[in-house]
């Protein structure tokens, strides 16, 4: 494991725990502040941007597989089923 692998684990662990402790100490104050909307909005926007970055420049087959995954996610709301259907669709298209 290289230095950057170690750093990724340690930085991510520190950040994740710091966020939990922040919730314990100041969660209620932050949730009633004028920045509460950032907590609500940011996770969804990051996920959407991640999906966009993995689809950018990909073939039409990949986009179709993503559309199928979106449909399955919409109907089932299950991460596991969406992963299985998405990979099956991707395997069929690409």
């Amino acid at each position: 494991m290289s230095f950057s692998h170690w750093m990724l684990i340690l930085v991510l662990a520190l950040a994740a725990f710091a966020i939990r402790v922040l919730g314990l100490i100041a969660g209620d104050a932050i949730r009633s502040s004028r920045f509460a909307w950032v907590l609500d909005d940011l996770p969804g926007l990051i996920i959407v941007s991640l999906v966009a970055s993995s689809l950018a420049g990909e073939t039409i087959g990949t986009w179709l597989a993503a559309a199928i995954a979106l449909l399955i996610a919409h109907v089932t709301r299950s991460v596991i089923l969406t992963m299985c259907a998405g990979v099956a669709a991707y395997g069929g298209m690409v």
Binding site: A65, A69, A73, T82
Partner: peptide, 12 residues
């Protein structure tokens, strides 16, 4: 792609 699909489900 499995994770792209997982992200799509998380977005949902």
């Amino acid at each position: 792609f499995a994770f792209t699909a997982a992200f799509i489900a998380m977005a949902r």
